[in-house]
Computed example of a mutant assay.
Amino acid sequence: MVPKLVYDDACPFCTWAVLFAVRRGNIRPVRLSAVRSGDSRLTEAERHRLPDAYEACAHLVTDEAVYSCGAAVEQSLVIAGILPEQFVGFLRQFADYERARERLYRLGAEHRGLLSTVVGREPPVNKHLSAEHGHRERHSE
């Protein structure tokens, strides 16, 4: 299964961030609004694997796991080849790493309006991807 990244498609910063990962790795974007409406590219089984409060942050759904919030960004960057897996393994040795990663994610989420003015892209992601790349969404994503 190609990893699927659930993102807030009402957020220009989130769109930019997901577009960054999707263009560099084998990752499929999934609009949060489509998950809410039940019309997303997630299978029913994948949808049930999301946490109850799935609307609170981004999620990366893979065969092995569901990564949420900062972990979703981290794993997306690993898949995209931006963040070396060995480096992440090194960081995970430190007791405060996970807390710092999640704090950084929350900081970005809390300031995404400001960040959108600098690097935002008009949602949704598929608006910026060509059909040749195979990233066009199946439904309204």
Rank of each mutant, 00 (worst) to 15 (best):
S130P: 08
R41I: 10
Y97N: 05
E74G: 03
E46H: 01
Y105P: 03
V22Q: 10
N126W: 06
K4N: 13
V73Y: 00
E64I: 06
A71S: 07
V119D: 04
R136C: 02
L32W: 12
R92Y: 07
R99T: 14
A80S: 10
P51F: 07
W16C: 04
E141D: 14
Q93W: 13
R24C: 03
L83M: 04
G108L: 05
R36K: 11
V125D: 01
S130L: 13
R106T: 02
T43G: 14
E85P: 00
A100K: 15
A65E: 12
R136E: 04
V35Q: 02
R49V: 07
L60G: 03
V35C: 02
A100F: 15
E85A: 14
R36V: 08
A131H: 09
P51G: 04
A65D: 10
F94W: 06
V61R: 11
N126P: 04
S116K: 08
C57R: 05
R23D: 07
R23K: 15
L77C: 00
S140C: 01
N126M: 04
V73K: 00
R92I: 00
L83W: 01
H59I: 05
I79V: 14
L107R: 10
V30C: 14
D9Q: 10
D39T: 10
I82T: 09
V73C: 04
A56Q: 14
E44H: 07
R31V: 02
V30R: 09
A56F: 01
L129F: 06
D63C: 00
L104Y: 09
L32E: 15
V73F: 03
A53R: 12
G81C: 11
S76I: 08
H59G: 11
V30A: 13
H128E: 12
A17L: 11
F87Q: 07
V61H: 03
A65H: 13
Q75I: 00
L129E: 15
E137D: 14
A45D: 11
Q75F: 03
R99L: 12
S116M: 01
Q93F: 11
H135L: 07
G108W: 11
R41L: 11
G113T: 08
P3D: 14
Y105H: 12
A131V: 08
L19W: 10
V6R: 03
Q75Y: 00
